[in-house]
Nucleic acid binder design. Structure first.
Lengths: 369, 369
DNA sequence: ATCAATTGTGCGAACGTTCTCATATTTAGG
DNA sequence: CCTAAATATGAGAACGTTCGCACAATTGAT
């Protein structure tokens, strides 16, 4: 490159032009300490004239604060994380904070790298949807190293960090209860249900029913299954294990296969409960492919409210998580910690809203015994 | 806070423990220069033992490179920006770069603040969907200050920065031609059409028809109107000015009002062309509200392919921009510039794909003369 | 054997801020 | 008038790295 001038106007040059020390120039430009009205003007004028831009790197190096918060999302491309991120970014911006973003794709290895990078970049705090809620030594280490953490959507067991979640268990129980009340006895469920530390779905059923399981220690999809089981128990309806479509991974393809299989059974469910945005879209796709009518052939309730649920055929009844609000709350908690709040850990549980629309009806007839 | 230890293990301490100079420790840990195998091991062991984490701030301050690229999106919450961002983040991560994100909400003032913040944080480059393509002095200044810029979706007139866009004019022309070929003579269009430097829609029509307008200097929605006009001209079909629904702002409410008005006319169009994701969703909403059947009562083609377009009633025919690819390309261009590429500006135009589905049919009858 | 690379090391100066300290000067209260 | 606070300034040391330089020690080709 021929020319590479400009850009590096330092505070020293501004000070020189203004005829004061760098210390004084720093004080007026950084706004910290005493300066005479006289010098304030002179320094500001010089800064303006030279087109001075403070170098936040240098400031951060000495203050130890970067005014940047790191975010590890699963996948910003999903409306779920996109909305949360929006909430975070808004609050951060309002306070002059920047947002450093990474995706984990729910892969622990990625998360590890991401957290590493963010910490090296000296972020003031970390907002994360943790992949692994049972161990996550790296997160414990981060906290120990003085980096406050706010968890989103799920909670690492025993981690000293705030959290913002939704009562998935109650919301799910509510959905299933509504379906049961409408007369459905065979309610299908499509859920990720990837990791559970202590066994398989059968074990899980037992543990829920004998109340020896703390839902707070689970991944959301397991919490939602928790509510599904509870609702059935409360209504005295036995659960057909075959109706619990465990996808086992966060994958559209796998979910599609699983859903098609579930809905193609001769004794297919009369109602379906999808447990997140991905499975809802996939289910809708399968339903269209199989030419099933909603709610005549199949009732449907979805977790996560997507824009198309408003205007599709009959509206789709759904649970809406307050996503941007969750992001905002997370950022607010974070900023409080950064400002020095060292009170006890806060675990916010925001209220989801229930969007009653037209996808639930009474079952037309029993498909099979 | 009672304890605030750990976290600050510096390279000096590592060096001391390893019994070498900070320079040597720096060389092995930073991987830049010569070091004996012997010392390499010793230093690495010491670093490991102390839990050393490099402070990228300090490194950046001296190298002048932060390995961070700034992104100014309109609104990450929209699938459009979310997908682009995903592409950017992937490429960045693969090269060890971080992504600093901000939203402009397409507001110049916000963009100004955002760019300011990013520059002060010393980003290595800026990827932006610029609000104002006619002036943007701040972007020219950034380039002059040595910060490479890659523009997305639209191009600031005369700005020395690369760009990644889509041929909106051609894609739009193609859509309209298909509708015309299907027999539609009254094709409605809903578009933002917020800013055009040189006048109103009438003037624009004239300028397009006498070929005195360079589409590259326009906002996407105007480019799409450009194609709409051209297609009509090519087919020899006169344009009814009333069918061009100019929303005038990026607002769902305004778009809804405009769309409802357009579709409620006694001489309503027999086909509709929506020009982005927002207007498509809004149009779908309006269509449902008015109880119009697709494609019987109304044919529909949308710009931007959204997930629900696959599984809604008849599939919705749409133009799909290669969003993640655009993000990836933008990041790639950016990284090349950062690595020192000072070749001529590149203006990439990626090919959109056309998803032919079931929302287009011949018009059933003329609604009115 | 000689000279020029190549390899290896440490010292101390950067980078652009803020911070600590020392030292004035002004203000205010008795 | 005196003293204590408040206001104002500058010199120079931080912050944690990398970089330039000087200087050895080792190579390898003539």
């Amino acid at each position: 490159m021929a020319e590479k001038r400009t850009s590096k106007v330092t505070i020293t040059e501004v000070a020189k032009l203004a005829g004061v020390s760098t210390a004084t120039a720093g004080r007026v430009l950084g706004g910290y300490g005493y300066t005479s009205e006289d010098n304030k003007e002179r320094v500001r004028a010089s800064a303006e004239k030279l087109g001075y831009r403070p170098n936040l790197l240098a400031r951060s190096l000495i203050t130890g604060k970067t005014k940047t918060i790191g975010v590890v999302a699963g996948d910003i491309q999903s409306p779920f994380y996109a909305s949360i991120l929006r909430g975070i970014a808004d609050v951060a911006r309002a306070q002059g904070f920047g947002v450093l973003l990474t995706n984990s794709d729910e892969l622990l290895e990625r998360e590890l790298e991401a957290v590493q990078l963010l910490l090296e970049k000296q972020i003031d705090g970390l907002i994360i949807a943790p992949c692994d809620i049972y161990d996550s030594a790296h997160l414990h280490a981060a906290v120990r190293a003085g980096c406050p953490i706010v968890q989103i959507d799920r909670i690492v067991n025993g981690l000293a960090g705030d959290s913002v979640t939704v009562d998935n268990r109650a919301a799910s129980r509510n959905c299933i209860s509504q379906l049961l009340a409408a007369g459905h006895h065979r309610i299908g469920m499509i859920a990720e249900l990837e990791r559970w530390a202590s066994g398989n779905v059968e074990t899980f059923l037992d543990r829920v029913l004998d109340s020896s399981l703390d839902p707070a220690t689970l991944f959301p999809s397991w919490q939602r299954l928790f509510g599904y089981i509870e609702a059935h128990a409360a209504a005295g309806i036995p659960i057909d294990r075959d109706l619990i479509g465990r996808v086992g991974a966060y994958s559209a393809e796998a979910a599609k296969t699983r859903t098609m299989a579930l809905l193609s059974r001769p004794d297919r469910p009369t109602a379906l409960f999808t447990v997140d945005g991905l499975t809802s879209a996939v289910a809708m796709d399968a339903i269209t492919a199989l030419n099933l009518r909603i709610p005549d052939d199949l009732s449907l309730i979805c977790f996560d409210d997507l824009d198309w649920m408003t205007f599709i055929k009959p509206g789709i009844t759904a649970v809406a998580q307050p996503l941007t609000a969750m992001g905002e709350a997370a950022a607010q908690l974070m900023l409080a910690r950064i400002k020095g709040d060292d009170g006890p850990m806060q675990h916010l549980s925001l209220e989801p809203t229930f969007a009653q629309r037209g996808s639930v009806a009474a079952p037309m007839f029993a498909t099979t015994a």
